[in-house]
Amino acid sequence: MYCYTFVTQTHIIIMTILEFLQQPWPWYIAGPLIGLTVPVLLLVGNKSFGISSSLRHICAACIPAKVPFFQYDWKKEVWNLLFVAGILLGGIIAGSLLVNPAPVAVNPKLVTDLAQYGITDFHSLVPGQLFNWPALLSVRGLLMMVGGGFLVGFGTRYAGGCTSGHAIMGLSTLQWPSLVATICFMIGGFVMANLILPFILSL
């Protein structure tokens, strides 16, 4: 009897923790944890937080093609590739064990806006109605997945960093060029989301 109670209680505690982990985490928990990556990487191995560099290292490792920009010892930057491999792995773990069964709770205005483009399913973080394999054969899908990806890869390298390298690491170390970059990221995003994307979505 005693043992039974203990087992039940442990079970309840584990379920409570799991239930907590399955919910979306609020910004004031997630944001500071993301910020902690800066000192963790600095203190663990003197590494500057930055993710888009991984794309450059992949180019240098796989398709250098005598381009001077890719002629360097990428093996010294293996940590960065392991870090992004970890992000992929983290996605797999969170997506299978800690998945939130409820649809993404978004602003009702966004729900109405997106409904006119036929986007009505909010069950996954990435809308399956826009991002799926058959959609690659449509103009809209091609523009969004291939075109969008190209802009992300070209733009981040041209800017010398992305949200992690400029907005988080750069601003944390008070670098004004990073502030310029971050402001430009936001301008680009506002223009796309409000002025151009409505057109692309209607294709």
């Binding site: 523009l143 969004m144 075109g147 969008g148 990806g149 190209f150 802009l151 992300v152 890869g153 070209f154 733009g155 981040t156 390298r157 041209y158 800017a159 010398g160 992305c162 949200t163 400029h166 310029v180 970059a181 971050t182 402001i183 430009c184 990221f185 936001m186 301008i187 680009g188 995003g189 506002f190 223009v191 796309m192 989301a193 151009i196 994307l197 692309i200």
Partner: peptide, 11 residues
């Protein structure tokens, strides 16, 4: 580059 990345980020 920042502007280009911003455009891509929103897509």
């Amino acid at each position: 580059g920042g502007l280009m990345f911003g455009l891509g980020w929103a897509i």
